[in-house]
Design a protein around this nucleic acid. Structure first.
Lengths: 208, 208
DNA sequence: TGTACATCAGTGAACGCGCGTTCACTGATGTAC
DNA sequence: TGTACATCAGTGAACGCGCGTTCACTGATGTAC
């Protein structure tokens, strides 16, 4: 939308521009694959607005960036919960979640970088590390393992929290390395995830 | 060393300054915990020299940064090979290597970030992703698994390369998340690594 | 032994850049009387 | 119904910043004759 066609929002509806800003920033992030390329100016340009008007909707750049990622991660959350609901073999559910998680990371590498590979001290307060354990994708993971546990398929010597942690770390390792080192000779994605998750699952879940 | 006390290197010995630059950059990286804080100017200041003189020794900033990291990773390589040489129970050796790797990452978080968590397209040619598979820490890891395999302790359905990949990804996940999310409620380090590696090892190694 | 010279490590000054953010403002909108 | 007014979304211009890098140079060192 160009400056000419943009109409200024009436009083109560500043949220419209807010959404457009989020859309533009997300688009730029996807196009450029670079957090640094998504400057306040670039976003403003894309929306068809001047830079200062961004500040009416976001406190600062970090808040904007995290809001963009937050929105994307909500979509991951939805994806994961869809897979949880299938509820076939719980171990297969975990595998399916692992694949969805990896796929999400590779589809949104910059968002994934910002959320899980960036500097913690640049994170706005509402996205502090501590919050991770209670909300979002990690909470979904705990639920998934809970289901496995309830079905009596978690090895008795392993508690749910530990299992969730190991799974998260392990899958995060896979996806973050594939993001950071795209030219490394990786196996084909599906094989890679299946082997990786299969191995880890074998260590903590009981076979049927 | 201040500009006043620095004496200019005689003809053949430009390497002296080169080392000082590497030292200063490494120091700054450790002190500031921030790659961005290590600017060419900051390094030059620390050494007691003007910015342009850095360029007599390093092609550009990226090359300087990777040279710093390279030096640090050689030390990790040494550490890992020391543990390989112990050669007790090969599974224990792998665990010891895992711990050393994690410890290294936490001790040199910025170097670890640059080498394994940064943008691949900012990497100078001599550190391309492809090279990783043949050299350095990953090669050491393959050797460690080779020893396990030679001792007949690798599960028959798992090949050495796959095992190395899963282990690397998995341990990288642990260390990179602890670097990126220092305020997450992590378990104590030693427990964390032992549990994590124990689980993964259980999946791919035969018990005694 | 003395002098002219080539070498080259390091300098000083500047280049052009794009960034996040602030500030006083404008002017269309909706409201109160 | 008409007018004066308050609101507040968005503007224009500028702030100060530090960055990587380039360029023509200086001047101490070692060498050749």
């Amino acid at each position: 939308m160009t400056p000419a066609t943009r109409t200024r929002s009436p009083r109560g509806q500043g949220d419209e521009l807010r959404e457009e800003i989020l859309d533009a920033a997300e688009q730029l992030l996807i196009e450029t694959q670079s957090e640094e390329a998504v400057s306040i100016r670039a976003v403003a340009d894309r929306v068809g607005v001047t830079p200062p008007s961004i500040y009416r909707h976001f406190a600062d750049k970090a808040t904007l960036m995290f809001s963009v990622c937050d929105r994307q991660f909500h979509r991951l959350d939805v994806e994961l919960r869809r897979r949880l609901a299938i509820g076939d073999d719980p171990v297969e559910v975990v595998q399916a979640c692992g694949l969805a998680y990896v796929q999400f990371g590779l589809d949104h590498p910059e968002a994934y970088r910002i959320m899980f590979m960036g500097h913690s001290d640049l994170t706005p307060d509402q996205y502090r590390d501590e919050v991770l354990s209670d909300h979002g994708a990690f909470a979904g993971l705990i639920e998934a393992i809970d289901v496995v546990s309830a079905a009596g398929r978690l090895k008795p010597e392993i508690d749910v929290h530990t299992a969730a942690l190991v799974l998260w770390e392990s899958v995060h390792g896979l996806v973050s390395l594939r993001i950071a080192k795209p030219n490394f000779p990786w196996p084909p994605l599906a094989d890679h995830v299946a082997t990786h998750c299969g191995l880890v699952a074998a260590a903590m879940f009981e076979p049927v």
